[in-house]
Design a protein around this nucleic acid. Structure first.
Lengths: 236, 236
DNA sequence: AGCGCTTGCCACAATTTTGCGACTTTCTGA
DNA sequence: TCAGAAAGTCGCAAAATTGTGGCAAGCGCT
């Protein structure tokens, strides 16, 4: 799942927050002061950073300022009552949220999820227009796939695919004529590096072929390369 | 320009007021009694309603009460001296203004403009997010939703939705055929900084389906895509 | 303090998807 | 041609994911 960096000089907070976040399935990197925090954030960028606003060597605000010169990782600040003056400035610098001490773990986790959700949406919204010219629409002869709609059809006739099947076929069809090893297909279908048996991929391929043959018995777009992997046939 | 509904049993008032308002460029819908007025107001919601307080079949007060269950269209009452006792009640119900008979057309027009201006300001204030120029009306086959009035109906029959339900359905219906992940729906329904469990979205979907099925048992516009999210069915 | 309504979430049932063992069939190269 | 190695299939039970009924906390109004 997502990685979260935690920068705070208070060991107690560091451990209790770590535990709370890890319980939710997040990976947590901890740093005990601003300087090493900045270093860590830049070298091993997390999906979200939680910074204490008061810290030795470099306070949270300064850390944020420097961080923003390089990245726009979402940031949540931990503040005490007297730090409120800084919040306006923090917001301007691009802080995403503030949590006032003392805080419940429940609140913290909620905010973390909210910020990650927003960041994810922001990212998704930023992608389509700027880079990644390949839209999530794919047309290959009689096959057409639409990621956004999670729809797939052959000769116009709809074919219902599960998530895994969709991802595998999408990966194959994206580059017709190019062989994809089973490992490559696993990477396409699974987020992290889960390892599944080779035979599992075969199973998915089997199901894909079956579903397409149900619609067009002469379907044979998915070729097997003995000892190598699978390939989506070139030209329709 | 704006549409104004006029409900009065007195033909003279109906025609003279219509002429006055149309001269100002407004579109005017007229109804001659409370019952048909309510019907018309719900099916073809105007920007403002002018109601006579005394009418056969259903008086203005009752009409307002029922209207408020569905929408918050601005309302101006026409009253005679004897009706003054009701004004307090009318205000509570959300009437926006009272005009005492007899009244000059000039006065009427002024009041109308004032109320519309206020309504517009209110509406702008309620939606501080600078963007969101998307239209407030949404028609998708048998479904119609009006963001302004927060009204929703299926095959013309009103369906009462809570805020969250409304936002979720609106988000889905806005792009029929497109899958929305639970996260995307959360974004549509909640402020930043609020995180709710994935299953909460399921709950809302459950309630939505229930409400629509109560009106049309064959309702199945909200599709579930296993492992992906929800989708509003394409075509009516 | 007492409603009535919304809402988030939990627990349990119902469904769907998926991984993989066990076999069979096909392919390759000596 | 024959012995592996590799790929195709089947069938299932485990895993995931979703559908639901309910409940209790939170809120706005009395």
């Amino acid at each position: 799942m997502a990685t979260i960096a935690l920068v705070d000089d208070d060991r107690n907070i560091l451990t209790s927050v770590s535990i709370a976040l890890e319980a939710e399935g997040y990976k947590v990197d901890t740093y005990t002061d601003g300087a090493s925090g900045l270093d860590g954030l830049l070298h091993a960028p997390p999906d979200l950073a939680i910074l204490d606003i008061k810290m030795p060597r470099m306070d949270g605000m300064e850390l944020l300022r420097r961080l923003r010169q390089q990245t726009d990782i979402p940031v949540i600040f931990l503040t005490s009552k007297d730090d409120e003056i800084d919040e306006l400035f923090g917001l301007k610098m691009g802080a995403d949220d503030f949590i006032h001490k003392p805080f419940s773990q429940r609140l913290l986790v909620e905010r973390v999820k909210a910020v990650l959700r927003r960041a994810q949406a922001r990212e998704a919204a930023a992608r389509p227009d700027s880079e990644t010219p390949k839209s999530d629409l794919l047309e290959r002869g009689k096959l057409s796939m639409d990621q956004e709609r999670h729809a797939c059809s052959w000769e116009g006739k709809p074919v219902t695919l599960t998530v895994t099947e969709f991802l595998i076929l999408f990966s194959l069809a994206q580059r017709p004529g190019v062989v994809k090893s089973r490992n490559a297909l696993m990477d396409a279908a699974y987020e992290d590096q889960v390892y599944v048996d080779d035979r599992t991929i075969d199973s998915h391929i089997k199901r894909l072929r079956k579903k397409f043959k149900a619609v067009d018995n002469s379907f044979d777009m998915i070729e097997t390369l003995y000892g190598v992997g699978y390939r989506f046939r070139e030209q329709a």
